[in-house]
Design a protein around this nucleic acid. Structure first.
Lengths: 220, 220
DNA sequence: GGGCTTGCCTATCGATCGATAGACTTCGCT
DNA sequence: AGCGAAGTCTATCGATCGATAGGCAAGCCC
């Protein structure tokens, strides 16, 4: 009987997929093993514990996400509308180009475990930064007075589900389209959206990181 | 040693709370029992199985939700904008007035189990009705051409998280405020929002179900 | 070919799980 | 007070879980 072979990459992919649909606690290591085609104890040659699989996925997401790291891609003086618009499209792009379906990672059943405290904090900090941008927009008059917690909740959900829009044919306009929907929630004058987008693009060009080049990742 | 006593109501409340934070599969029956102050086997005198607890919660939600039942509260001729606005605020109100924290129910790990197929279908049908309203709004020109699946995703998330806004002081303006945020995503002319709201209110008055009376449930 | 390393397998472990059995307690009714 | 019902308790069950142990196979290098 020929022995199966498995790579850590395959385990991560299948585990993430199962975590996304059945939750971490609803997914057994036997199910993961079956999905990759080996026997359950084999997983423990590649990952010390089941939680280690999740931790590796968190690390992966963090490493790719400017939002989670708190890295700004636009200069300090960018208006809240431009900042908000770009941060949404950026995070949508990150999740659409993820090698793994990470929808299971940001459910409270998992991320609230003590072991994952640092990822919880990073996530909360990212949401707080978004909140601050919206609040500045409201204060500046670019955005309408609004229920910021509702907007944040909607953002949270959308980014976490973005992987669903990464089919075989990845639509290059999706990140920007989602950012438009998000911006419409708060923007006092929706007619400004095209110019906000152009401004975001120009600032990225000036920073040497043109947006169309970032979008090229969707072709991979 | 005095014996503890427990009601099914208490079990449902604590179970729902635990399901919301730890997930159904991440919550043991021992945890539920501890939370209500009895020993684990006692739960099985009130509910035949752990899944029965979840089923009871689904039934409760369904019974209270016009959206899930597909019950229209506005007449057929109501414009998509009015229909959309009202359905959002209605479902927010339902979840804000829920006796249980139902956030754990609509996670795929649970609702996708074969046993809960009918609730999955009811939920999907409700989302499809929302989609149809948005699509009609786009076709009529009331709404901008938009990524409908993104709007639906955001709606989904918001309604499911609405229980978080039911603190000790329930804000009677919250359902309408959330509906405004949702409507802004799609409405071609946001300046029409006040009149859309008035129209929704008038139609409900004419139907004998004034909105302020529905909102009174928040005072309970 | 032989030796070593890696990792896949079967077997097993201790722990936890949802649920059952039956003794016992409490409450309500007569 | 006595009886019956309801439901809480302790004890236990069979099943499943994440993880460990050690044999074995395959691949690589000399």
């Amino acid at each position: 009987m020929a022995r199966s072979k498995v790579t850590p990459e395959q385990i991560l992919r299948e585990a993430a997929r199962l975590f996304a649909t059945k939750g971490f606690h609803g997914t057994s290591t036997r199910e993961i093993a079956d999905a990759v085609g080996v026997r359950q104890p084999s997983l423990f040659h590649h990952f010390a514990t089941k939680h280690d699989i999740a931790r590796t996925l968190y690390e992966y997401d963090y490493a790719r996400s400017p939002g989670l790291q708190g890295v700004r891609e636009l200069p300090d003086g960018a208006p809240p509308s431009v900042e908000f618009y770009h941060s949404v499209r950026r995070e949508i792009l990150v999740e659409m180009t993820s090698a793994y379906d990470l929808r299971g990672l940001y459910l409270s059943a998992l991320i609230d475990e003590p072991e994952f405290r640092q990822w919880r904090m990073a996530y909360d900090a990212a949401m707080a930064r978004s909140r601050a941008v919206i609040e500045k927009g409201v204060a500046d008059g670019e955005f309408v007075a609004t229920r910021v917690e509702v907007v944040i909740e909607m953002l949270d959900a959308t980014i976490n589900q973005a992987v669903r829009w990464s089919g075989d044919q990845r639509d290059r306009s999706m990140p920007d389209d989602v950012a438009v929907v998000a911006l419409r929630m708060v923007l006092a004058r929706p007619s400004r959206i095209p110019s906000i987008r152009r401004q975001a693009d120009r600032l990225l060009d000036a920073a040497g990181t043109p947006w169309p080049e970032a979008l090229a990742a969707l072709d991979d």
